[in-house]
Amino acid sequence: EPELVFKVRVRTKDGRELEIEVSAEDLEKLLEALPDIEEVEIEEVEP
């Protein structure tokens, strides 16, 4: 069974934007590691 992958769009407080694809596990780590995120948009990517 393929692992869930999420497309994550992040905007930081200083206005930088970042778009990455991460696994569910990595997404959890990412959110814990970035306390200064202003906006996060997450969508599931079809395998």
Rank of each mutant, 00 (worst) to 15 (best):
E1M: 12
E1A: 12
E1I: 11
P2F: 09
P2R: 13
P2K: 10
P2N: 08
E3F: 10
E3R: 13
E3L: 10
L4W: 09
V5S: 08
V5E: 01
F6Q: 00
F6V: 04
F6M: 04
F6G: 00
F6E: 01
F6A: 01
K7D: 00
K7W: 04
V8G: 01
V8S: 00
V8W: 03
V8C: 10
V8L: 07
R9C: 09
R9F: 02
R9Q: 00
V10N: 00
V10P: 00
R11I: 07
T12E: 01
T12G: 04
T12F: 15
T12Y: 15
K13R: 10
K13V: 05
K13F: 05
D14N: 06
D14S: 07
G15Q: 02
G15E: 01
G15C: 03
R16S: 05
R16T: 07
R16D: 04
R16C: 13
E17K: 09
E17Q: 11
L18W: 15
L18M: 09
E19K: 09
E19H: 12
I20D: 01
I20C: 11
I20W: 14
E21V: 15
E21Q: 11
E21R: 12
E21T: 14
V22P: 00
V22R: 00
V22E: 00
S23C: 07
S23F: 07
S23R: 12
S23E: 03
A24Y: 09
A24P: 06
A24R: 12
A24F: 10
E25M: 13
E25R: 14
D26V: 05
L27F: 05
E28A: 13
E28T: 09
K29I: 05
K29C: 08
L30A: 04
L30Y: 08
L31T: 02
L31A: 02
L31R: 04
E32F: 14
E32T: 10
E32M: 13
A33P: 01
A33Q: 09
L34T: 05
L34V: 05
P35M: 14
P35L: 14
D36K: 04
D36H: 06
I37K: 04
I37W: 13
I37V: 10
I37R: 05
I37M: 06
I37Q: 04
E38P: 03
E39M: 14
E39L: 15
E39A: 11
E41C: 13
E41K: 09
E41F: 13
I42S: 02
I42T: 03
I42W: 11
I42Q: 02
I42A: 03
I42L: 05
E44N: 08
E44L: 15
E44W: 12
E44F: 13
V45L: 11
V45A: 07
E46S: 12
E46D: 10
E46T: 12
E46L: 13
P47Q: 10
